[in-house]
Computed example of a mutant assay.
Amino acid sequence: MEGKVNTDKVFQGERLKEAREARGYTIRELTEKIELNNHQTLSKYENGKAIPPAEVLYKIMNTLDFPFNYFFEKENYDDMNNIVFFRSKASTTAKLKKMHEIKIEWVIRIFNYLESIVDFPQSDLPQIEEKEPSFFKPRDFEEIEEIALNMRKRWNLSNGPITDLTHLFEKHGIVVSTIDSNDYYVDACSKWVGNRLFILVGNEKASPSKIKFTLAHELGHYLLHHNITKEEFNTKNIYKRMEEEANHFASAFLLPAEVFSTELVTHTMDYYLLLKRRWQVSIQAMIYRSKELNLINDYQASYLWKQISKRGWRTKEPYDDVLLKERPILLKEAIELINTHNVKTKVELRDEAKLSADDIEAIATLPQGYFSQYTGKDNVIFFKKNYSS
C-alpha cells in the first residue's frame, strides 16, 4: 500500500473513480492535474490496490471539489448498474452520459438523506409489477393513448392544459432536479427506485415548453418501459422505438386527443401560436400531435415544417421567453425546512450530504452561495438583559 490516511474509515476507490468521471476527467488528465508521476498509480487508487497519501488526497479533493468524507463513505454501487434513460442527441458522448448518470445518483442520495429527516409526498405512480425478463414488445399507439389518459384520471386532471408540470410531479412524489450542464446534448435523464421516479433535467436553459415535454417523456419511460433489460436498452432499433413511444406518451399526456382536436379549428401558424400560449407546449410538438391524430394531412404537415424552418423556429420559438419557467422546489424546501427549524445547521447538512456545497446547491436549486452564508460559529456577543432602545 502507498501511504496511509489518518482516519478510522477506509478510502473507497470507487468514490474516486465516480468523482473523476463526474467532473469529466480521464485518468491521464487527472494524473496531470494532481501532478502524479504516472497514471497507473491513480488507477491503483481507484481499484483499491493502493491508498493515496494525505498530500495526494488533498490535491484530489481540491482539483475535483469534493469534501474529505466523500471518499470514505461506502455506498451500494450495485444500484448504479440500473438503467438510466436519456433524452439526448445522438451525438452525445459516453463521457457526458456517464456524468449525468452519476449526478442523478447524487439526486437519489440527497433525497434518501433528507427523507431520513422529513416526510416527502408519497409516490403516486402505479406500482409496476416486476416481471421476468422477456423480449421487448412494441406498444401500439392506441394503448399509449389510453395509458396517458388513465394517468391524467389517476391524478384527477381535466383534459385541459397543465400549467406547472414540475409542481404536479413533485406533488405526486416524483423528484425533479435541474442542472445547468453548459451543453445542449442531454435534455434529461431518469431513473426509478421502486415506484419513485427521479428526473434530472440536464439543460435548464432550454425553453419552458421543451422542458415540459421532456418531463412528460421521462414519465412515459417509467410507465411503458419498466421491465426493459440492459441488452434491449442497448439495442439500437429497440431504443429508437422506446423513444418514439415515450414521445407519443408525452404528446398524449400534454395534449389530450378529445380536447385538443376540438380546439384545432384551423391550421395556420398564427393559430398554432395562439394555442401555444394556452397549452404551453411547443408549436413543433403540436404539429406532431396534429399529424398523429390525423388532424392534418401530409401536405399540410410538410408546409408547416417548412414554415418553422423558414422563420428560424427550429431552436427558438415565439413566446419561449414568456411562458412559465418551471422550477423544482422539493429538495430546496426540505433543506430550508430542516435548517430554519434548527434541526441541522447548514454546515451539518453540507457535511452529512457528503458532496460539495456547489453540487448540493445545484441539485437542490438552492441560491448559489447558500451554504457559505453561515460560518458554523456560535454567537459570542449578546444584548444586555436590561437594555431597552
Rank of each mutant, 00 (worst) to 15 (best):
W192N: 05
D183G: 10
K384W: 06
T92F: 08
K346L: 15
R277P: 00
F135H: 10
I238D: 10
W155Q: 02
A364D: 01
F169W: 08
K332E: 08
H248M: 15
W305L: 07
L274E: 15
D119L: 14
Q368D: 15
L254E: 07
K95T: 03
P208I: 05
I174M: 13
D187T: 02
S261Y: 10
K332V: 00
P52V: 01
W106H: 14
V322Q: 05
R23D: 03
L255E: 13
R314H: 12
F260S: 02
N247V: 02
S388V: 13
P161N: 04
K384T: 01
E258P: 00
H167C: 04
K9F: 13
S309N: 15
H267W: 15
K89Y: 11
V176Y: 13
F72I: 00
V176G: 06
G48P: 03
A250K: 11
D378P: 01
K17N: 06
E21S: 14
N81Y: 05
I51G: 02
K137V: 09
E105A: 10
A188R: 10
S207W: 09
N69W: 13
V84K: 07
T41V: 14
V322S: 14
Y45N: 02
F233K: 05
N82M: 08
F249Q: 12
L42D: 04
Y184G: 03
F383R: 09
Y185A: 09
T31Q: 12
E218L: 08
G160K: 12
L304Y: 03
F86K: 12
P256E: 09
L224F: 09
A90F: 08
P208R: 09
F111P: 01
I162C: 07
I296H: 06
Q122E: 15
M61Y: 00
A206M: 14
D78C: 03
K191F: 02
S91K: 13
R289K: 14
E35I: 04
I329W: 11
Y272W: 11
K236A: 01
L254C: 07
G160N: 11
Y288K: 12
E18W: 12
K89H: 14
N38F: 10
T92P: 02
K240G: 07
T262K: 15
L366D: 01
K98Q: 10
P328A: 02
R109T: 00
E21A: 14
Y303P: 00
I296F: 06
N339Y: 14
K332H: 13
D183L: 03
I27E: 12
I283F: 09
S43Y: 12
T375H: 10
P367Y: 11
A301D: 03
L223F: 01
L168S: 00
I147E: 06
D164F: 07
I211S: 05
A362L: 08
I102H: 06
F66P: 00
R277F: 07
L125V: 01
P138C: 03
S372Q: 12
Q307W: 08
E317L: 07
E18H: 08
K316R: 13
G24N: 03
T375D: 13
E129T: 04
K97A: 02
K384L: 09
N112I: 01
F198P: 01
E292R: 07
N247A: 14
L36W: 10
D8P: 03
E75H: 15
A250G: 05
T31L: 11
Y25N: 07
R87H: 11
L254M: 14
D65S: 06
K377Y: 10
P256I: 08
K316S: 07
I338A: 05
S207E: 11
R154E: 09
L337G: 06
T229S: 14
K4F: 13
